[in-house]
């Protein structure tokens, strides 16, 4: 449905309870992200951006409110369906890369396809294609401890794309990298965006934010500021791919 946004939340709220203490991490977030949009989520720590990210990534369910991803109301999904959504619809990139240390780069990239039930032959082809895309075709058999930080994050990027998800969620993707490698990673993300992927990055770094077409600022669990460039208003795809 081209007219519909990929992501739509309505009064999304999350409350954590630890004993008697209640923490309102998110209190009523309305957010829409169109297909192909390149968005940065910013905000001080405790602003709720990680919580929002977990909800958007189907890792968690909200206390109240609704979240539609690709026109499915996530709040109605059970555990198995949520896992399936994480598997097919979302590609995660983490600050600390989160590669499995015992597996080669290729096997790490293959992992989401294993859970998707992709046939081994197809997995191998797709993994090679993805590693080529991030410039690591020659490092496919290396284990994470034989790779540099930038290389590890590139493997993670390739893994995020494995099942051709409709949404890429990156949590401080350059947080553990030096300036030069950060630039490399951002260039790759920019490429992904240009190819029509929807990307949401959580970051503190204004330089990273400068790459995105739209910056959403959170504070105290609410959207404080949604800096939406006029061209990216309703149908984002026309804006990003003129």
């Amino acid at each position: 449905m081209p007219g519909q946004p990929l992501i739509r939340t309505e009064n999304l709220a999350k409350v954590y309870r630890t004993g008697k203490v209640e923490v309102r991490a998110l209190c009523g977030v309305d957010l829409e992200v169109g297909r192909g949009e390149y968005v940065v989520l910013m905000g001080p720590s405790g602003s709720g951006k990680s919580t929002l990210m977990h909800l958007l990534g189907c890792l968690d369910t909200p206390t109240s409110g609704h979240y539609w991803l690709d026109d499915r109301d996530i709040t109605t999904l059970d555990e198995v369906e949520l896992a399936r959504f994480r598997n097919r619809q979302v590609g995660f990139v983490f600050q600390s890369f989160n590669l499995l240390p015992r597996l080669s780069a290729r096997a790490n990239v293959t992992l989401p396809m294993v859970y998707a039930g992709v046939k081994p032959r197809e997995r191998a082809l797709r993994a090679r294609e993805l590693l080529e895309q991030v410039g690591l075709a020659d490092r496919a058999d290396h284990r994470p401890n034989e790779l540099s930080g930038g290389e590890m994050q590139r493997v993670a990027l390739a893994r995020a794309l494995a099942n051709r998800p409709s949404l890429i969620l990156a949590d401080e993707p350059t947080g553990n990298l030096d300036t030069r490698t950060s630039e490399e990673i951002m260039t790759l993300l920019d490429n992904f965006a240009r190819q029509g992927n929807t990307i949401i990055i959580v970051t503190h770094d204004p330089e990273v934010a400068a790459h995105a077409g739209r910056v959403v600022r959170l504070r105290d669990g609410r959207i404080e500021d949604d800096d939406r460039p006029p061209s990216a208003s309703r149908d984002a795809r026309t804006a990003v791919k003129p």
Partner: peptide, 12 residues
């Protein structure tokens, strides 16, 4: 945690 984020179900 990672396997679950990548799509592993509880059963997996």
């Amino acid at each position: 945690g990672l396997r679950k984020a990548l799509g592993a179900t509880n059963r997996d």
